[in-house]
Simulated assay, not measured.
Amino acid sequence: MEVNTMESKYKTQEEKYEYIAKQHGGYYRHNFTDHAYLYNLYFPPKDVFNHLKDNIHNLVLNYPMAQNALAELIGDVIDQPAERIVVGNGAAEIIKILSGSLAKKLIVPVPSFNEYANAAPEGIAVEFPLEFPSFQLDVDKFTAEAIKVGADMAVVVTPNNPTSLLVPKKDLIRLAEKLSHSKCMLIIDESFLDFADNKEQISLEQDIEKYPNIAILKSMSKAYGICGLRIGYLLTANKEFARKVRDGIHIWNINGFAEEFLRILPQYKQEFEDSCKIVKADRDIFYKQLCDIKGMIVFKPDANYIYCRLPDDAINGPAVTKSLFIKYNIYIKDSVGKTQPDADRYIRIASRTQEENTKLITALKDVMYLKE
């Protein structure tokens, strides 16, 4: 069966761009190449889809499991006890609880994933500028600012979105230890860590019991290629903090398809690891291709997307984004709306297949100096 398209929503490619630019998903219905959203194109394997199809009647007709049983399923995947885990309808549900309900004063380095600040009531979120132009996190300055503003929750996304840069594990540990004296919880978002090299040595998941003021948040959509299933989780050894987050989640927050995916996921551990290797290999080639563009500043990525500063004599990010879409039907993200200097000079490009990445390089070179 063909995917239902929505061509009636627009008459020209420019109208299509204006429509898409206001959306937050559903891109597959609009027939363009999506270099904006960030997910694993090589997982899940066909066997997973076949399993879900074979069980569709039970999955649709019956109530799914509730929180405790779902936490056990996640625990089987990450080798952690269920009492440390809270399962969300995507990481977004948990972010809404953290920023919107629990934090009295939250601090987050920027540019970063906007939802942490957006989900907070007015006056709750404090944005801490990353070192410019390197976009590196200065742990000492961040700690000092967190203490100064009286933050009870600090957020670090690693690898960061949009910069695709990793925060070293030793820096995160030092940050957690510094913040513990002021009773500040450190939320570490590891949603893209599966695409980093040596992720086992970088992740704090297996060290979580040592740091009661750390909670790890992870969206499974990106690494596992399941954006439509909506699964995320929070992991912490702080039982009181876990309880507070869990109290904000309703009884049936995960649907049956997501539950069944979690149930069978441990069977596909090797396939998942192999898929991440392919993603990283494609990304590394893509990175080299972008570096070859004269005047482009390209940040070496630790995730499956790449952050770039356009050449000074090229058109700006919004113009490049629009021109790519109108002329080549390719969609990327500019950084307008991010809190950073020169936001309109930066673009974030998701790595796809080698063939698609190469087509984007050709298209990007063509539109970078177009004048509207």
Rank of each mutant, 00 (worst) to 15 (best):
K46F: 12
E259F: 11
F299L: 13
V279E: 02
S191G: 07
N161K: 11
S164A: 15
G225C: 06
D79E: 09
G75V: 04
A258M: 07
Q340D: 05
P45L: 10
R29H: 14
E2K: 11
G25E: 09
V279P: 11
I208K: 05
E372P: 15
A146Q: 01
L310E: 06
A119F: 12
Y17R: 04
K104G: 03
Q13G: 00
D342G: 05
S221D: 15
V336E: 14
F257A: 09
I326G: 11
G317D: 13
Q201C: 04
Y116S: 06
I94D: 06
P129D: 08
K333R: 15
I278M: 09
D152M: 05
L172I: 04
K218A: 15
N62K: 08
I347D: 03
K96Q: 13
I78D: 07
I349P: 12
G150L: 03
C291Q: 08
A103L: 01
N357Y: 07
E7H: 05
F299H: 06
E115D: 09
L229W: 00
I74P: 11
P44V: 08
K22V: 10
L235T: 15
I361T: 05
Y331I: 00
Q206H: 06
V149T: 06
E131K: 15
P133W: 01
A281F: 03
N50C: 08
A69T: 05
M6K: 06
M185H: 15
V245S: 12
D284Y: 01
Y10N: 05
L41G: 01
F195G: 06
T12Q: 07
A350L: 03
E145R: 13
N304S: 15
Y37I: 09
K53P: 00
P129I: 05
A196D: 07
D342Y: 09
E7T: 08
P133V: 08
F32L: 04
R29S: 10
R84G: 12
K327G: 00
F241P: 01
N253M: 09
K269C: 12
A363Y: 03
G25P: 05
V155R: 05
I107Y: 00
S182W: 01
Y233H: 08
D194L: 14
K322L: 05
L204Q: 02
E72S: 05
K170N: 15
K183I: 04
F113D: 13
P111F: 10
I226S: 10
I216N: 05
K300G: 02
D34R: 02
P162E: 04
K22H: 11
I147E: 15
G228R: 12
A125H: 04
E115K: 10
K338M: 15
L73G: 01
T163R: 03
R309E: 07
G256V: 02
Y19M: 13
I226A: 13
I231V: 08
A117W: 02
A154L: 12
I231L: 14
K365T: 02
I306F: 15
N316Y: 01
N316Q: 01
F299I: 02
N304W: 14
Y116F: 14
Y19E: 13
A146K: 08
I107E: 03
L204S: 07
Q289P: 12
K105V: 14
T236V: 08
K22G: 14
G337R: 12
D366T: 02
I78K: 02
L137Y: 09
Y305L: 12
